[in-house]
Design a protein around this nucleic acid. Sequence first.
RNA 1: UGGGGUGUCGUCUAACGGUAGGACACCGGGUUUUGGUCCCGGCAGUCGGGGUUCGACUCCCUGCGCCCCAGCCA
Length: 553
Amino acid sequence: MTEKQRNFIQRIIDEDNISGKFDQRVHTRFPPEPNGHLHIGHAKAICLNFNIAGEYGGKCNLRFDDTNPVAEEEEYVNAIQDDVAWLGYDWEDRLCFASDYFEQMHALAIQLVEQGDSFVCDLTSDEIRATKGTLTEPGKNSPYRKRSVADNLDLFARMTAGEFSNGERTLRAKIDMAHPNLNMRDPVMYRIIHASHHRTSDKWCVYPTYDWAHGLEDSIEGVTHSLCSIEFEDHRPLYDWYLEKLGVYHPQQIEFARLNLDFTVMSKRKLKQLVDEEHVTGWDDPRMPTISGMRRRGYTAAAIRKFMAEVGVAKRDNVMELAKLEYHLRQDLNKHAERRMAVLHPLKVVITNYSAEATETLTAVNNPEDAAAGVREISFGRELYIEQNDFMEDPPKKFFRLAPGREVRLRYAYFITCEKVLKDDQGNPVELHCTYDPETKGGNAPDGRKVKATLHWVHTQGAVQAKVHLYDRLFAVPDPDSTDNFLEAMNPLSLDILSGCMLERSLADVPAGTTVQFERLGYFCADSDTTNDSPVFNRTVPLRDSWARIGKK
RNA sequence: UGGGGUGUCGUCUAACGGUAGGACACCGGGUUUUGGUCCCGGCAGUCGGGGUUCGACUCCCUGCGCCCCAGCCA
């Protein structure tokens, strides 16, 4: 039953396949503009388009909608390809660029001029706006609307040849200045931009607008279902108008609601501002909702895809909870990430009845969820580090961990009992003296006695010192977009840089990009800045922490 | 205000005239050498008002809310 649940797009395609509208073909495309990096919202469109094509045995193109040279850069073209590939999708030989069709589009524009369906307009940008009308009042015809076909052809040729300066003239469709849909009030098809394009260089100085170009791109590529976000619904009549007037192959545009996430912003403009004004370290800052940022943070493509599968596809506005994304992340990492021990805020422990000379090797399980991950050896000795917050001198009722006189288990090692607390001038514990029970090696007491807590720890000898970046949500409020200035809604605690963290020996040389679980703490990913001398780990996501929740109550 | 779209648990999303279901979140319990995972249970919804119908989330009328559009951005 659940498998039969089809979203509205699948239903439309099912019907088209029954009617034979597209000869049972399914061909989609993901059409980013290379003017920024992809974010988690784009991932929804990517998954949707590629998955739909996959389900129906169809194809999905990766197409760069590069119609505006002033905003676009090759760096983005490359970054976008990396991101789509990392998400696990393959466009095979269908890497497309709108700019590859500029010649064809230009010829089709001339066809429209010849048909009397478009004209060269000398109005300035301001004048066009002034004659556009308003939401409630119709616009006025351009005085140039009645130009002869011959004049239009001549002028358009001269525009193309570079005789005019930026904004001096446009080519406009001749539709209806009184149309209730503003997009139909003689929209601009070509504008003059004397700028070098990242692919066509200085070949063109007239560039097609989105509305004119997009349907043509879809048509040229033989796309069947052109999936886009909901704000283009108003543009569909224009999409259809162009293709009908031209009499060319006509794909079906279908609009769906884009993804929103709480505690973040998703507009490219705002993300770019965060980067440009250095509120973050770059597009791939692990706090960014960009694909590259999430990748650096340690998110997995599998988790993102699973999340998208569950998000669903509909037309109503939606804001997904970050919690749901994190659920799928933990779900995936729990299954696949190996466990390691690391102490972020070290507190020294001396086992007073353990020999000062001796060390021993213990066996630890790499992943309790995956026997195939095997085991590893860890070193144990007289001096260890445990987590500062695993000890309380005067513990509240529900605190199970170490306290004076209390016995706990050191994971995979021994039971220890806290005998003495050494403190600094301010009264903070700086060192604990404990005793261990040699009978409890491995973590079980032969007499069957139980402890209420198991702590992670690291042997001081051979411990690897590391830097750890603790990330939290970039914004302090669920909907930063609704604030007057979204920058003021930023979370000042979104990054906590810890140094002097102590890692178990086996973490010494892990390559960047490796994600492990630091037991009892969370999932951590070796950052791209990591080196063998100085490892840097990013906290991808903490483990669920019911103790912390008790604390909040 | 003209046009377009959209209203189902806190958040997403199903049900397409026939018992309003699932996931996350939240709450409670069990297992546990991670206060993790896993398992069990609970909480909670059809925007309002009319109508059609044996029966309405679904169809009709009406009201209300929210989103998008007045770039030579996409």
